[in-house]
């Protein structure tokens, strides 16, 4: 019981904090932290795409930046070249990312472990170099800037992401919706199929699961999550750049996920928060802040193989066991 109270308490605390951010942060500290938190939310969705593949299907992808980049460029090119308005551009970005994930997934999910990891890196490198070299279209490393179309327009009322508070809530709503969808998938029959494949793909095929197709579905779903985060990040920065398709970005997503807790719903959010906060605090004082990232990643792999959320779950489990041991004694005492 104690466990449930604590977990409900934490969940409500986090939800209340996230809703209060636009008012709480200016009251406590610099406004700049509102945009840091917005950025954390966007990147946590990117880490969630790594987590869906690694934590729930057992596929370690070092190439998720490719789909992030496609989400980004889909939005930027949609607005800048095709003259799309907000929602069609958003949809175009997500659809491009999913289409790319489908094409590379057809080849990648035939393989597992290091072969899978390598082919995902190779795919992302190919498209990174293509994006860098196709400067007239993509702007290369400099990227392309665009001006934001409004999100909604009713008569004279216009909502646009240029309003930081609206932008924050828009990102919070989209990210929450994506996490909710992922939660639904993980707890569905399809999600159990994913877990079975992660645990033992040979056995999974012998009970009749089509391992190839299920992995491909997961890969496209992960492409969706990465694509949404890339599209949001394009709106957030008002630009797209090939540098976000580099495999270092993919690697960061992997580190955030593993330190936060792969195979847990909110591990990626915790890991992303930790590392972006460290980056924001330390990088202004010390240029080698990535050393801290490396050190934390090593410590996590050695001492908390299931990440920070894994540690937390372990504590909660012990609390459960203690409760189970204590409660019979308590009922005895209560008896006259």
């Amino acid at each position: 019981m104690t466990r449930r109270y604590i977990e409900i308490g934490v969940a409500m605390g986090v939800a209340a904090f996230l809703i209060a951010v636009p008012w709480l942060i200016p009251a406590l500290t610099d406004n700049f932290w509102v945009s840091v938190i917005t950025e954390i939310l966007i990147w946590s969705l990117f880490a969630a795409s790594v987590n869906l593949l690694f934590g729930y299907v057992g596929l370690l992808s070092f190439g998720q930046a490719l789909y992030f980049g496609f989400g980004m460029y889909g939005v930027a090119l949609g607005i800048d070249h095709l003259g799309l308005s907000f929602w069609p551009a958003f949809g175009f970005g997500i659809a491009s990312a999913m289409a790319m994930a489908l094409v590379s997934g057809v080849f990648a999910v035939r393989l597992s472990w290091h072969y899978f990891a390598i082919i995902t890196v190779v795919f992302s490198l190919i498209f990174y170099f293509l994006a860098v070299s196709m400067k007239p279209l993509t702007g290369g490393d400099d990227g392309i800037n665009f001006s934001l179309p409004p999100v909604f327009r009713f008569g004279r009322m216009v909502w646009s992401l240029t309003d930081p508070t609206f932008q924050y809530f828009f990102v919070l709503a989209v990210v929450s919706l994506c996490f909710f969808l992922m939660y639904r998938v993980i707890n569905s029959p399809l999600g159990k199929g994913f877990l079975a494949i992660r645990d033992n793909d040979l056995r999974a095929s012998l009970i009749g699961l089509n391992v190839y197709v299920l992995r491909l579905i997961a890969f496209v779903m992960a492409g969706f999550l990465a694509g949404v985060s890339g599209a949001l990040f394009a709106f957030f920065g008002r630009y797209a750049s090939a540098s976000y398709m580099f495999y270092q970005v993919s690697g960061e997503g992997v580190v955030w996920t593993i330190v936060g807790g792969a195979g847990t719903m909110f591990g990626p959010l915790v890991g992303t928060t930790l590392f972006i906060v460290i980056r924001e605090i330390v990088s202004s004082h010390w240029e080698h802040h990535s050393l801290i990232v490396g050190l934390l990643a090593i410590l996590a792999v050695i001492f908390a193989p299931k990440g920070i959320v894994g540690l937390w779950n372990g504590w909660m489990m012990r609390l459960d066991e203690r409760d189970a041991a204590v409660s019979p004694a308590m009922t005895l005492q209560a008896d006259p």
């Binding site: 998938v185 707890n187 569905s188 029959p189 999600g191 159990k192 699961l209 579905i217």
Partner: peptide, 12 residues
């Protein structure tokens, strides 16, 4: 796994 279709959203 006997079923061809695994529902993606309904709670298991």
């Amino acid at each position: 796994a006997r079923n061809r279709f695994l529902h993606p959203f309904r709670p298991a």
